[in-house]
Design a protein around this nucleic acid. Structure first.
Length: 658
RNA sequence: GCCCCUGUAGCUCAGUUGGCCAGAGCACCUGUCUUGUAAACAGGAUGUCGUCGGUUCGAUUCCGACCGGGGGCUCCA
C-alpha cells in the first residue's frame, strides 16, 4: 500500500524510496510520491526543504493513472515516429487504460495499431527517462509548441481546463516532459503537467485496443481527431486477467446470446433499434411483466393504459416538445392535426389524474403501466437492447400532497430495490442528479429545485447505500435519484429512476381538494423500476450469461429418453409438470441421448429429466442440472414437487444437486 | 448526426489479385444404428455473395450512394 517517508532537502524522492527499502521495480514499484499538499510528484523531484511524503505504488489508483498516462506518452511518441506529420491532442488515463488523440491525414488502420504497438515495445525496452521541465513563460511554451496547434490551444486556455481529463496543463504552472534515451539525449517530448513514471521500463504490460474518432475537446463543432485506446497494467498477469474479463463480457453479450438462445431479433425490415421477441424471449418478457405488474398492484399502484400516439398539444403542455422534438419521431398529419408517437407516458397519466375532481383521500394516487414509447435515437447510438428506438417503460407516477412526497419517495426507493433483488441484482449504489445552475435548460425556481433536491438527498442518504453526485444530470423539470446495479461480473447499469417533479402538475393544472376544502397542487413523482423492459431484459441476459433462473427460463424442464421407447414415459412426467404450470417438454429429436444432453446444456435449460430402462422400471427420473451435477432415481412425485418448488420459490441460483 | 471498420447459407466463417456450376463446420431433411449423463454414421437440400446504380466483353470481387451491423465521439426526458 502506501508508506510515509521524509525526503530530506536537496535529495530526491527516489533517494528516499531507495533508503526506505521500498520496491523500485516489479508489480508493487513505487512510481511517484504524494506531498503534504496532496500533490503527486515525480521521483526525481527534489524539495527545497525536508518534505513529508507518501510513497505511491504502481498498483494503487493514482499509481495506475501515472502508469497509464505514461503509456499514453509512449504511444504518442510511437505515433510521431511512424507518422511524423501527426499533431498531438490530449492523452489522459481512463478506467483500465488510456487514450491519446491525434490529428493525422489518414485514420489509423488495424495494421497501424500493430506497428504502433511494436514501436511502443521498443521505446519501453529502451528505458527512456521521463524528465520534467518548467517553461519560464507562456511565450516560451508557445514558441516551442508552434508546430503543435492543439497543444498551443491548450496553452492559451490553460486557466479553464484544470481537470482530470486534460493532463496537459494545469496546476498553476506550465511544464513539459522530455523523454531522454540512455545517453541523456532528448528523443521526444510533450506538454504535460505530469507526473510520470521515472522510466518507460516501468511499463510492464500494455496493449493497444482500438482506434476511433473523437471530437477535439469533446464538442461536435470541433474537428474530429483519431483516438487510439490502450490498456496498461502493473504486470503481465493483470493484463491477461483484464483481457479475460473482456472476453467474458463478450461471451455474455446479450446480442449474441439472444441469437443463440432464439430470444429476439432486430429485423432489418422493421428498422434500426426496433426489436421483435421470439417465443422463448417472449416467455421471459411475459414472466418479467407478470411479476412486476403483480408487485405493483401489491404496492398500491393502479394499472392503467394509454395510447402510443397523441396530438402535439399534449407535449407542448408537458413542455417536452420544445426540449426533445429532435429525439421524437416526426409528426404524422391527420385531420388537420399533428400526431406524435409518444416518447414518454407522464402526460397521459396526468390526463387520467385530471379526468375528474380528486380528493386528498385518494392520495397518494399511483398510476402504473407498461408504456411503449418511441424515441428517435441517433443512428450511431442504437445498440442491441440497451439503446433502442422503441421501448416499454415500466413507468409509474405517484401524485401526492407535497408534505407526503418524502414518504412516497422512500416507499418507491424501497420498492425498486426489492424488485431488483427479486431478479437477482443485489449490489447497488445511488446517483443523485441535480441541475447545473449555469445551464438554462432547467425550468422552475431556485426554491423548487432546492426543496426537491433536499428531499431526494435525504431519502437516498437514509437507505445507507453509497450515494454519488451527478451535477447537471437532472431532467429539465426536476432532480432524480437513479439506482445503479452491479451485475455478476461487476459492471454497473443504470436501472431505476425516481424523479421529483414540481413542474408538470402546474403545467397541467393538476389539483386535489384538501381536508380543509381548499384546492391544492399535488407533487408528481416519476419512477421507472427497470427503466425499460427491453434494456432490463438485455441486462438480465448478460447478468445470467443466458442461464436464467428456473422461474424465468423459457424451457424449465426437458425430458431426455435414453431410447426412443422411453419417450412416452417422459411424456407422462412432463404432462404432470405442465399441469403445475411448468414449462416442460420432451426432446423427440433423432439425436442420441448424449447429443440431447449437449443441446439442453447449450440451451441452458435448468432441469434435464433423463429416463431409461432403470428409471422406467423404478418409477423414477434422473435429474441432470445445468452445472453438470446429477440426482439419479428420483421418484416421480418427488421429482414433480422438486421442480415446482424451485420454480415457485423464484430463487435466482441453481438448481443443482450440490 | 460525425469518423473508421464491416455485410457471402438459419448460425460461425473461408474464398474469388474481375472469368467455367461460390465453399466448410454447425443447424436442417432422409436413411441406418436403439444407445445411461456435453457431438453415432452415411447421404441430401440450402445462397438473386445487404440493396440500387456505375466502370467493364464480363462484377459477389473495383467505384459511388443507400440500408443494416460493429467500435468510438456527441447525445440520452
Amino acid at each position: 500500500m502506501s508508506a510515509a517517508l521524509v525526503v530530506p532537502a536537496g535529495t530526491t524522492a527516489a533517494d528516499a524510496v531507495a533508503a526506505a527499502g521500498l520496491p523500485q521495480s516489479g508489480p508493487k514499484a513505487i512510481v511517484v510520491v504524494r506531498d503534504a499538499d496532496g500533490r503527486l510528484r515525480d521521483l526525481d523531484w527534489s524539495p527545497g526543504q525536508d518534505a513529508d511524503v507518501e510513497a505511491v505504488a504502481i498498483d494503487s489508483p493514482d499509481g495506475l493513472d501515472v502508469l497509464r498516462h505514461s503509456a499514453a506518452h509512449v504511444l504518442a511518441q510511437a505515433v510521431q515516429d511512424i507518422f511524423p506529420e501527426a499533431k498531438l491532442g490530449i492523452g489522459p488515463p481512463i478506467e483500465n487504460g488510456f487514450y491519446y488523440d491525434f490529428d493525422v491525414e489518414k485514420p489509423f488502420q488495424p495494421d497501424d495499431l500493430a506497428k504502433l504497438e511494436k514501436r511502443m515495445q521498443e521505446i519501453v525496452k529502451a528505458g527512456q527517462t521521463f524528465r520534467r521541465r518548467e517553461y519560464a513563460s507562456l511565450d516560451e511554451a508557445r514558441a516551442e509548441l508552434a508546430h503543435e496547434p492543439y497543444k498551443l490551444e491548450l496553452v492559451d486556455i490553460k486557466g479553464d481546463v484544470d481537470d482530470s481529463e486534460v493532463m496537459e496543463v494545469g496546476g498553476g504552472e506550465l511544464t513539459h516532459y522530455d523523454n531522454l534515451d540512455r545517453d541523456g539525449k532528448r528523443v521526444w517530448g510533450d506538454l504535460c503537467r505530469g507526473p510520470h513514471l521515472p522510466t518507460t521500463r516501468l511499463i510492464p504490460a500494455f496493449k493497444l485496443m482500438r482506434s476511433a474518432a473523437a471530437y477535439w475537446r469533446g464538442s461536435e463543432k470541433n474537428p474530429q481527431l483519431q483516438r487510439v485506446y490502450g490498456t496498461a497494467w502493473p504486470s503481465r498477469d493483470e493484463l491477461k486477467a483484464y483481457l479475460n474479463r473482456l472476453a467474458e463480457a463478450e461471451r455474455r453479450d446479450h446480442r449474441k446470446l439472444g441469437t443463440e438462445l432464439d430470444l429476439f431479433s432486430f429485423p432489418d425490415e422493421i428498422g434500426s433499434g426496433l426489436v421483435v421477441f421470439h417465443p422463448k424471449g417472449g416467455v421471459i418478457k411475459r414472466e418479467m411483466e407478470d411479476y412486476v405488474r403483480a408487485r405493483h398492484i401489491e404496492e398500491g399502484f393502479q394499472y392503467v393504459g394509454t395510447p402510443h400516439i397523441s396530438k402535439e398539444g399534449l407535449f407542448h403542455t408537458s413542455g417536452h416538445l420544445p426540449y426533445y422534438a429532435d429525439t421524437m419521431f416526426p409528426p404524422m398529419h391527420m385531420e388537420g392535426a399533428d400526431y406524435y408517437l409518444k416518447a414518454m407516458n407522464c402526460p397521459m397519466h396526468n390526463l387520467i389524474f385530471r379526468s375528474r375532481g380528486r380528493s386528498y383521500r385518494e392520495l397518494p394516487m399511483r398510476l402504473f403501466e407498461f408504456g411503449s414509447v418511441y424515441r428517435y435515437e441517433k443512428s450511431g447510438v442504437v445498440h442491441g437492447l440497451t439503446r433502442v428506438r422503441g421501448l416499454t417503460q415500466d413507468d409509474s407516477h405517484s401524485y401526492v400532497a407535497p408534505e407526503d412526497a418524502p414518504a412516497e419517495i422512500k416507499h418507491l426507493l424501497n420498492f425498486v430495490l426489492s424488485l431488483l433483488r427479486d431478479f437477482g441484482l443485489d449490489d447497488f449504489y445511488l446517483e443523485l442528479s441535480t441541475r447545473d445552475p449555469k445551464s438554462d435548460k432547467f425550468i422552475g425556481t431556485d426554491e423548487q429545485w432546492a426543496t426537491a433536491t433536499e428531499v431526494l438527498d435525504r431519502v437516498a442518504t437514509e437507505t445507507g447505500l453509497e450515494l454519488v453526485a451527478d451535477p447537471g444530470g437532472a431532467a429539465f423539470y426536476g432532480p432524480k435519484i437513479s439506482v445503479q446495479a452491479r451485475d455478476a461480473i461487476g459492471r454497473t447499469w443504470q436501472m431505476s429512476t425516481i424523479q421529483y417533479d414540481f413542474n408538470m402538475p402546474a403545467r397541467f393544472g393538476l389539483e386535489f381538494q384538501a381536508a380543509d376544502g381548499s384546492r391544492q397542487e399535488p407533487v408528481m413523482i416519476h419512477s421507472a423500476k427497470f427503466g425499460s423492459i427491453e434494456r432490463f431484459f438485455g441486462v438480465l441476459v448478460e447478468h445470467y450469461a443466458g442461464a436464467f433462473p428456473a422461474w424465468l427460463a423459457p424451457v424449465q424442464v426437458v425430458g431426455i429418453p435414453i431410447r426412443d421407447d422411453h419417450a412416452g414415459y417422459l411424456e407422462e412426467f412432463v404432462a404432470r409438470l405442465r399441469k403445475e404450470g411448468i414449462r416442460a417438454e420432451v426432446d423427440h429429436s433423432t439425436d442420441r441421448m448424449q447429443k440431447k444432453i449437449r443441446t439442453a446444456q447449450q440451451q441452458k435449460i435448468p432441469f434435464m429429466a433423463i429416463a431409461g430402462d432403470d428409471d422406467v422400471n423404478g418409477g423414477t427420473v434422473s435429474f441432470r442440472y445445468r452445472d453438470g451435477s446429477q440426482r439419479n432415481g428420483v421418484g416421480l412425485d418427488e421429482a414433480v414437487a422438486h421442480v415446482v418448488e424451485v420454480v415457485r420459490s423464484r430463487v435466482n441460483t441453481g438448481p443443482t444437486a450440490e
